[in-house]
């Protein structure tokens, strides 16, 4: 079980902001989200979307612990 957080346009697309998902790896988590919502699955792999596990940016796959926090971060815009 990992806690998944969506930000910005991803949150609007999915219609939720935070949810627990059963997955032992980031790849499995992406698969589970895409199986449930194909549009979200595609958006998570879209240009400029970064992934953070426990508040550290990761590339590619990563193992998840039951208490992992996974955040999907679309292109950022501050100021």
């Amino acid at each position: 079980m990992a806690r998944v957080l969506l930000f910005g346009p991803l949150r609007d697309l999915a219609g939720w902001r935070e949810r627990d998902v059963e997955a032992a790896s980031l790849a499995a988590l992406r698969g589970a989200l895409a199986a449930e919502d194909a549009a979200l699955g595609e958006a998570l792999g879209g240009p400029g979307v970064q992934t953070a596990v426990d508040q550290a940016l990761v590339r590619g796959d990563a193992p998840l612990s039951p208490r992992s926090e996974v955040a999907f971060l679309p292109p950022m815009s501050g100021g």
């Binding site: 950022m76 501050g78 100021g79």
Partner: peptide, 14 residues
């Protein structure tokens, strides 16, 4: 700092 904040800081603006 402003150039970085505009496009690299984790904010989302609507």
């Amino acid at each position: 700092l402003m150039d970085y904040l505009k496009s690299r800081a984790p904010f989302w603006k609507k």
